[in-house]
């Protein structure tokens, strides 16, 4: 179980949060996107073994969305950042990509 540092409320138990999955997915223009591009946007995921930039929602707290950079191998959280911020650079080796 994770201890997550909500940017608004401070460290809270993971059970207060909902994981929103992969972050920074850009929505293509539905008017011009091909079926392949739209399918890619809807369904394809990076699902990395190691560093993952993902969205979290403080469902039982401030009800704000934010981003986390977390290892999917060790579960260590390297960074918490705002929902409108770009992903910070993190050494992938540190995140245990293998």
């Amino acid at each position: 179980m994770l201890l997550i540092e909500c940017p608004h409320c401070g460290p809270r138990e993971q059970t207060e949060f909902t994981c929103g999955g992969e972050g920074h997915i850009v929505r293509p223009d539905p008017a011009t996107a091909t079926d392949a591009e739209w399918g890619h946007y809807l369904f394809m995921r990076k699902n990395p073994k190691g560093l993952h930039y993902e969205r979290w929602f403080h469902a039982h707290g401030c009800r704000q969305w934010f981003h986390a950079a977390r290892s999917t191998v060790t579960h260590e959280i390297f960074a918490i950042y705002g929902i409108d911020e770009p992903p910070p650079a993190i050494d992938a080796n540190k995140a245990g990509s293998r």
Partner: peptide, 13 residues
């Protein structure tokens, strides 16, 4: 568990 993981272990809750 709701989050992505390759760790072969889950949360107690």
């Amino acid at each position: 568990d709701g989050f992505n993981s390759y760790a072969q272990r889950g949360s107690l809750d």
